[in-house]
Design a protein around this nucleic acid. Structure first.
Length: 377
RNA sequence: GGGGGAAUUCCAGAGCGGUCAAAUGGGGCAGACUGUAAAUCUGUUGCCUACGGCUUCGAUGGUUCGAAUCCAUCUUCCCCCA
């Protein structure tokens, strides 16, 4: 269930509800816990404290370890990781891109050589739906091919036509599995994914085609894979008019704080990105003043918090000097604190975007912050 | 007291006559990271008026066209025997 509460130009303020966790306020950032955990030692309990509304996990990775059958036996992913809120599972389509050297694509689906031990795994639309059904997530993503950049027009066309056919199969299998009495989450929803690389005509044709297949939401995939930022914005601009107004839009894998602000301005509701957690683990911290590389020597004896304007649990208690020390001393606490801070920032970013939309001042918010939050402090 | 071994650029440790400003680790410094094969990867780490030059390999003196590499003395450290 999705409801647009209000709009400001193309930007939308909305509410989304699903089987778990009540209502998600959008625009929203989904905190990424690929293997059922946020990397850096952050648990689902921590997510509650840092303002996370919805969590994202991965089909391919959980299928390999511990195996979706085990997660199912444990009562589903919510119970397994003790997260009561909504969960979106990515389909494995991104691994078609990120694990390109280890896979082969055919019409039926994709065979992977496991990145862990090399054993062969076949994943097509039906397999991905079956795994996501076993995980019991609230939103299942359609199985797609995230095409690498740059792609030729010919390949992008072949690929996104195949992804459209895969969506039909996903939809059929998803509906079938949801109706089974043993379904872990019978109210699981399905989002379709738009592809077409950097070619507006392919993007638009694909978007028109996939919205004929009834999904609870539609995503834009295959962006932020190396193309210039402006190209990404141009593609969103091109596709957005063809996305259903009454359904949520999800820009997959994006992005920097400014990318998110710009995409909200273009009508996107859902986001997810590895950046706050990965960069956090690598010592790069986001603040309202810009980014802080806590590893830099200049913070060695800095008694201030990461950011003077942040009220996250980390900034409330610890100095830059302490956090830098933890990183230098290889303490796992460093990763945890850095990731907690960054996720707090991302969740707060979304809260501020929502508040700006509520107050009809998103344009000013955008003007004030877009393009500035990535500058070095 | 006697005998033997070693001293290398921040550390450890290669090198044993020219191709050495000196391998490789570590540490330091900096950068990258966008649906997570990432607690990973990359660059850099003597000085300078830098596609070239200058001073380095415990100290001093010597051999040689040429020395971190050979010789002498000294200093320090380690090991073995008494």
């Amino acid at each position: 269930m999705f409801k647009v509460l209000k709009t400001e130009e193309s930007a939308r303020r909305g509410e989304f509800s699903c089987a778990h966790g009540g209502t998600v306020q959008t625009p929203v950032f989904m905190n990424v816990g690929t293997q059922g955990a946020i990397k850096g030692g952050v648990s689902a309990h921590d997510l509650k404290e840092i303002g996370c509304q919805i969590e994202l996990s991965n089909t391919y990775h959980l299928h390999l370890r511990p195996g979706d059958a085990i997660v199912r036996k444990m009562g589903g992913l919510h119970k397994f990781m003790d997260w009561e809120g909504p969960i979106l599972t990515d389909s494995g389509g991104f691994q078609v891109f990120s694990l390109a050297p280890l896979r082969k694509i055919r019409e039926e689906g994709v065979s992977f050589a496991s990145h862990i031990d090399g054993h062969k795994i076949f994943m097509g639309p039906e397999e991905s739906m079956q795994i996501q059904s076993n995980l019991g997530s609230d939103i299942a993503m359609a199985f797609d091919e995230c095409v690498e950049n740059p792609a030729t027009y010919e390949y992008a066309k072949i690929s996104c036509e195949r992804t459209a056919r895969w969506l039909e199969r996903c939809k059929a299998e998803h509906d079938r599995l949801n109706c089974l009495p043993e379904a872990v989450n019978p109210r699981q929803m399905l989002f379709g994914i738009n592809q077409g690389a950097t070619f507006p005509d392919l993007r638009i044709a694909h978007m028109k085609r996939i919205q004929e297949i009834d999904c609870e939401g539609y995503a834009i995939g295959g962006l932020a894979v190396g193309e210039p930022t402006q190209v990404m914005y141009d593609i969103i601009d091109a596709v957005e008019p063809y996305m259903p107004r009454e359904k949520p839009r999800y820009l997959m894998g994006v992005g920097t704080p400014s990318n998110i602000i710009e995409a909200v301005a273009r009508g996107v509701d859902f986001f997810d990105c590895v950046m706050p957690s990965r960069n956090g683990r690598h010592g790069k911290l986001f603040t309202w003043e810009g980014t802080v590389n806590i590893l830099n020597e200049k913070y060695a004896a800095d008694p201030n918090p990461i950011s003077p304007t942040c009220s996250c649990p980390v900034c409330r208690s610890f100095s830059r000097a302490y956090l830098r020390h933890l990183f230098k001393a290889d303490e796992v606490l460093a990763l945890r604190l850095a990731v907690l801070h960054n996720l707090w920032f991302y969740n707060e970013l979304m809260a501020k975007i929502r508040r700006a939309l509520d107050g009809d001042c998103f344009a000013e918010f955008r003007e004030k912050y877009s393009g500035k939050l990535e500058e070095r402090v």
